[in-house]
């Protein structure tokens, strides 16, 4: 009995320590990236290339998901609001949900599984095939040449993707409620405009997605760079990227939301 309890407690302790240790390691790694970011800005072509792989190639999944999420929000919101006789407010509901939460969070989750895992796998494979070692032996620091451009590519891409996600979502909501369900178009937009605030909703949403971009890119590059140089090592690292990024996104979202709400009242 005591043994089982002790074992359970030990497991909890070990897990906590390893999580805290991992967060610390990612933060230290982030510092390393920032210290080696000079090359990325002197040769911005390197970053542009990564914006292509992280951003442009995630465009389709982001746009389509945004449209669908907006449509579902429109349908659900319409159902509920109609029973209160205020179906015109559906625009407000769609826009606020997308700007404040769903836009930044869902696009970051999609980005973590689409681009984050790809970054981890690529860096992990480069390490496993000794490309990073080779680069180091050519007197080129892989942190500056490989890791930092991918990090900045992700940091630049995600806020743009989040904005596109929200815009597509509002378009989807508009299509479902105004075009299909017959909500008045003027009321849809005007109520939305009266309720959505540039600073509190749009800019805060952008800040969120910027923070998520830093977190996901740092985790993805960290997992790739620290991956054991074997096939299982790289596949495990890819999985860890998706899992830890998703958890980090949701936890950071809670923190940021609480922080921003405090600013409202």
């Amino acid at each position: 009995m005591r043994g089982a309890w002790g074992h359970g407690l030990r497991t909890v302790g070990d897990t906590t320590l390893s999580i805290v240790g991992r967060i610390g390691a990612v933060v230290l790694f982030l510092g390393q990236i920032l210290r080696h970011s000079g090359t990325s800005f002197r040769r911005f072509g390197l970053v542009i290339r990564e914006v292509y792989f992280a951003g442009v190639q995630s465009l389709i999944i982001i746009l389509v998901s945004g449209l669908f999420v907006g449509m579902v929000l429109g349908l659900q919101g319409f159902e509920t609001l109609q029973s209160y006789g205020s179906s015109e407010s559906v625009g407000v509901l769609v826009a606020l949900s997308l700007m404040r939460e769903l836009g930044p969070v869902v696009s970051a989750l999609l980005f973590a599984s689409r681009a984050g895992s790809a970054i981890t796998a690529e860096i992990g494979l480069m390490k496993a095939t000794e490309q990073l070692s080779a680069m180091e032996m050519m007197a080129v620091n892989p942190l500056a040449r490989v890791v930092a451009p991918r990090f900045w590519g992700g940091v630049i891409s995600l806020p743009l993707l989040a904005v596109l996600f929200a815009a597509m979502g509002i378009l989807g909501g508009f299509l479902v409620t105004v075009v299909m369900l017959g909500v008045d178009s003027g009321a849809f937009w005007s109520q939305m405009q009266a309720a959505v605030d540039f600073h509190h909703d749009i800019l805060n949403g952008m800040i969120k997605s910027l923070v998520f971009g830093v977190a996901v890119s740092a985790i993805a590059t960290f997992e790739g760079y620290e991956a054991p140089p074997t096939a299982e090592g790289v596949s495990g690292a890819t999985t860890r990227t998706v899992v830890s990024s998703s958890l980090a996104i949701l936890a950071l979202d809670l923190l940021l939301t609480a922080f921003m709400m405090k600013g409202w009242n």
Binding site: E122, L125, M126, T129, E130, Q131, S133, A134, M135, E136, M137, M138, A139, V140, R145
Partner: peptide, 30 residues
């Protein structure tokens, strides 16, 4: 290290660069 060349086991070519860019890599970097 700029004065040292290394041939790694299995080559360790940069898989995201073409053959030309691989060979030109150090000239462009250094």
């Amino acid at each position: 290290r700029r004065r040292v060349g290394v041939l790694f086991q299995f080559g360790a070519l940069f898989t995201d660069l073409s053959v030309f860019d691989n060979v030109a890599f150090q000239m462009r970097e250094h």
